[in-house]
Design a protein around this nucleic acid. Structure first.
Lengths: 209, 209
DNA sequence: TATTTTTGTCACTAAATGGTGATATATTTG
DNA sequence: CAAATATATCACCATTTAGTGACAAAAATA
């Protein structure tokens, strides 16, 4: 007969596993992925590194489980105006890029993940990229494609430039205290200017494409 | 009396220094900056690591000297159409982003530098960012500002989105064999679509801003 | 409570890495 | 050619890092 799971106050496997997962998140957010070493993770978790091998198999598997447990791309506004969609989805597209611009700027952990994905060939990171791509596909299919017809790819290219620009600019703003194209991306004015630019581009796409 | 510099075929300080600098560039391009370790650099250079300390003071100074010795942002087209500038610089702006889009895609070393700048707070990397910003400022002042007047900042925000989008998309295309917004950024068609999108955006900026 | 099993710690090995003093060799100079 | 010195190598130490076997302590079970 199988033994009951240990649920003591001092020794508790599930809580310990969670401590390791939390440690990964904390290190990622504060020190970056280069600091994700066994000894480091164990110290932050306040537990012995041996447990990482016992419970996960090693740091790689622990990190994979961490990445799998988070939903990094869930910032998509969930209330979508069906009237707007029916008329092409222009406002939805604008709301989307605006909220992404703010969300990525706030979420330092997401920034690290985005950079990490460009640097390392980890299967779980690739899965994250595929997931983002898949969720984006749903939106593009519903928002852009019906309205743009054969100009669909052109609209996609415009959105690709905006989204990728958002990623880079937000990470740049966080890591450098320096302007980009003369804009202070940490200031209210600078960020507002970028938002207006995104709105302008989307408006023109809907009007002139 | 000062001794003449050693210029032998087998032992030659200047050539050795250059070997170390070349090794840094090669490692950066092929393995990324995480592989820039003393032992590694020395092995690639085919010399003893002690010389790195003797000649540069350490890996950090060697890397700084390497970054200082390169002109990463010199891809700006040097033949500028003065007639176009006089009429606002629309074609110049387009040519600029098009050539940047190709240049960053080809130059893997530059890609690593761009990423590195977002990850590490190294003084010499900051200097590179400042240099890029300064060179960009010259262009924006001559190409955009005279034409856009009080809408100058808006045009700068649009260019910021395009340039940062170029960086991210090119690096993404290099590191992932995966679409972005459904576009294959490694294919001729996908890249052409992005260029057309950039042209469209710049055209609309000049016509409607 | 005594036994068994799970949970956790500790001390250790091995490999990788950064750094340096002693020494050997090539090159220049007299 | 011999002495002097710049150039380069080597052996070595200290630190960091990943990984593991032996053992201790807590919790469940009978």
């Amino acid at each position: 007969m199988n033994r009951k799971v240990v649920g003591g106050a001092i020794r508790n496997k599930e809580k310990s596993k969670q401590k390791f997962l939390d440690a990964v998140g904390w290190i990622l957010k504060t020190k970056g992925f280069a600091a994700l070493k066994v000894n480091n993770i164990a110290t932050v978790a306040g537990l012995d590194k041996k447990l990482i091998y016992n419970y996960f198999g090693g740091t790689d598997q622990l990190i994979d489980e961490y990445l799998h447990s988070q939903d990094f791309w869930s910032s998509v506004p969930n209330e979508i105006d069906s009237v707007d969609i029916a008329t092409g989805g222009r406002q939805t597209a604008k709301a989307l890029v605006h909220s992404q611009f703010d969300h990525v700027y706030q979420n330092k952990e997401l920034q690290k993940i985005i950079l990490w994905g460009l640097l390392e060939n980890r299967k779980s990171l690739r899965r994250l990229a595929e997931k983002r791509e898949k969720e984006g596909e749903v939106l593009l299919k519903n928002v852009g494609d019906p309205h743009f017809g054969d100009k669909g790819p052109r609209f996609r290219a415009i959105m690709a430039l905006l989204v990728s620009g958002i990623y880079y600019l937000d990470i740049y703003a966080t890591s450098h205290n320096l302007t980009f194209c003369g804009l202070d991306l940490r200031s209210k004015e600078g960020r507002e200017e970028v938002k207006e630019a995104m709105s302008f581009i989307i408006d023109r796409a809907y009007l002139d494409l």
